[in-house]
Amino acid sequence: MYEFISGPLALISFAIFFVGIITRIVWYVKGLDWRLDRVAYTEKLGAGITGAARSLFHWLLPFNRTTANHPVFMAVTYLFHICLVIASIFLVAHVVLIEESWSISWITIPDYIADYMTLAVIAAGIFFLIRRLTDPNVKILTTASDYIVLAIALAPFITGYIAYHQWMDYKFWLIVHILCGEIMLIAIPFTKLSHFFLFFCSRIQLGMDYGIKRGGAKGRGIAW
């Protein structure tokens, strides 16, 4: 069981993850149309790149008005995303597994930091859940898939935490953890989790729109 889940299934999950992402990015870029979108993407590429860079800078970092207007929610959101990405990519156990399978490796973070980050992801996830259940503004927008997506994103962290601390049957929770991770990898290209990479597409597109057409050439650098 463990061999299958951590071997071929992991390979398949990563394959779906990467092929899915690349396919969707290609689909996204091919679907951009200077006439329909009314943005001269290629003719004014320079202004577009400047706009895109500005857009990414202001939104990858907390230099935007939404962060100023909603500091608590945005702080939790930044924390959630940063911890989620760093803890899963730089965890010693993950890097070791990948090195054993594919002979590639990279730097790692100490386990106790990953442990705190995991707790932060779970805590932020609970915050999002409570907000979804109680805030009338969020409630009206929420669909079943929002809960499923949140569950998919949190499951690897909850199961990973249980497995790491060996509270219960380690082998069982390890298998569940790996399965949850694989479900997440597979879900990323096909669900709202696709914002993992489509966020960049969308931000770059809007940045180009503003940079090329909506005042990029004339304004003083609007942080859209």
Binding site: Y28, K30, G31, L32, D37, S194, L198, C201, S202, Q205
Partner: peptide
Amino acid sequence: KSRIRTWLEI
């Protein structure tokens, strides 16, 4: 096309 469909999706 992809721009609007992506906006609606994400």
